[in-house]
Simulated scan of single mutants.
Amino acid sequence: MTASTPQAVDRNLLISRADADFSAMRMHEAASGYRELLTVNPRDVYALHRMCLICVHTDEIAKANDYVTRALQIDAARADLYEHAGLIAAMMGEYTRSEILYHRALQLSGSTATLHRNLGDCLRLLGRVVEAKAQYKAALSIEPNLHHAARAIARISVELGDIDDAARYWALAWSLDSSSLQDGLDLIVALGKAKQTALVSETVAHIREREADNADALQELCLALYKIDHFADMLSVARQGLALAPQRVTLHHYAAHALSVRGKVADALAHSREAVRLAPDDPMLQCQLACLELSQGDFRSGWMRRNVMYSTPLARATLVFPDFPRWNGEPLNGRRFLLVGEQGRGDEIQFLRFAEWLRRQGVVSVDALIPAAESW
């Protein structure tokens, strides 16, 4: 048996103590031990790597980069060093350098789930989402339960308009970890767009049961259902939320919308009026109530309330207000009119019929301000 040299024994002892401190998260003490090793041998790759990890933990990213760079200069065949260098480069916002380092790690070690996942993250930050999606799929092929990758693919698929992939991978992410309410809501929207009605109902039921005492969550669930036109479920969820929080304005707003879409205008009016009572200064709620009143033939109140919209910042930012006097009901004979489109295309076409009505009232001429053809 060959006896260890004193220097070797000292190194082993220092490593043992420093590693124990590192494992116990005593980073200051661990760093002291590894620095002592580097004083003896500045080319000690193990100590350099450990110092890199300590600096990441203490949020000294520039120093971490220096240590891992020194380690790679000594041992350029270590895939784990390239991977950690890639992570640090990404933390520094140097995504192109990070990509190069990850590819080098893949060349040395072959495919690993973490490398493909990290490279996917890097490519996504570079805006190359199609390539990122491929890397996340590679990570999942190695580690099928990798929630991060499934979730990332789902989000990218939504961004790319890949409806079926979005639904598939949100469902996978949800099956791996259903703790996030937002993930469940995103899943519902994706499933709705993919016309997977049964799975929508299943997910909605799960969230309603889990969040039965959470009015905030039920309100967010209403919004998700609104996005996919599931108005029957939206109404039921809104009522569930209102049973918990009868003064919740937004839930009254959602209930009114769901009822009106389904033709139950009288019931919708009750919720809409309550919403306006609770938040009288909200122009969107005033507009909703105005539309319901107009649909019931209450033109005086409806139009007066509807006109509130023209004074809002949103209207000023999105509508056209020509520098002409606005008609406020004065006699029409001998006047000229400009009709300004402000609704959806169907409404604009319908309102053009008032040009003939105006002409019959003695208006000299009627012009219409309409969108350019390419925006139709």
Rank of each mutant, 00 (worst) to 15 (best):
L339K: 02
T318C: 07
F321L: 07
T312L: 05
N333T: 10
A317K: 11
N307Q: 10
W357F: 13
S311C: 00
Q350D: 05
A355L: 03
N328D: 05
G341K: 04
R360Q: 15
G329D: 05
D347P: 07
Y310Q: 14
G346A: 14
G346N: 12
V308R: 12
E348Q: 10
D323E: 08
M309E: 15
Q343T: 03
F337R: 11
L332V: 12
L339Q: 05
D323Q: 11
R345N: 13
M309R: 12
A317C: 01
G346K: 08
P322H: 08
R360A: 13
E356P: 01
R345Q: 14
L332A: 09
L339Y: 12
N333Y: 06
P331H: 02
S311K: 13
W357E: 08
G344W: 04
G346I: 05
T312C: 04
N333A: 11
F337M: 15
M304I: 03
A355S: 15
E356Q: 14
F324C: 07
R305M: 15
R335E: 09
T318L: 15
N307F: 00
A315I: 01
E330C: 04
V340Q: 02
L338V: 13
L352Y: 04
R326H: 12
R305K: 15
F324P: 01
G334E: 01
I349T: 12
L314M: 11
R305C: 00
F321D: 11
G341D: 15
G346H: 10
L319Q: 11
R335N: 05
V340F: 01
N307C: 02
R345H: 14
R305D: 08
P331L: 05
F337C: 08
V308S: 09
T318K: 13
A315S: 15
G329W: 14
A317W: 00
R353D: 09
G341C: 13
R316M: 09
P331R: 03
P331W: 07
E348M: 12
G329T: 04
L332N: 06
M309G: 09
L358W: 00
E342I: 13
L338P: 05
P322G: 01
F354K: 09
R336I: 01
L358Q: 03
P313H: 01
R316S: 10
F351Q: 15
M304H: 06
D347Q: 08
G344H: 07
L314Y: 11
L352G: 14
F351N: 10
V340H: 03
R326W: 06
E330T: 02
E330K: 03
R336D: 10
R360L: 14
G344R: 14
R353Q: 07
P331A: 02
E342K: 08
W327L: 01
L314N: 06
A355F: 02
R306K: 11
E348Y: 04
E330R: 03
G341N: 15
T312K: 01
D347S: 07
G329A: 06
R326N: 10
M304A: 15
N328S: 05
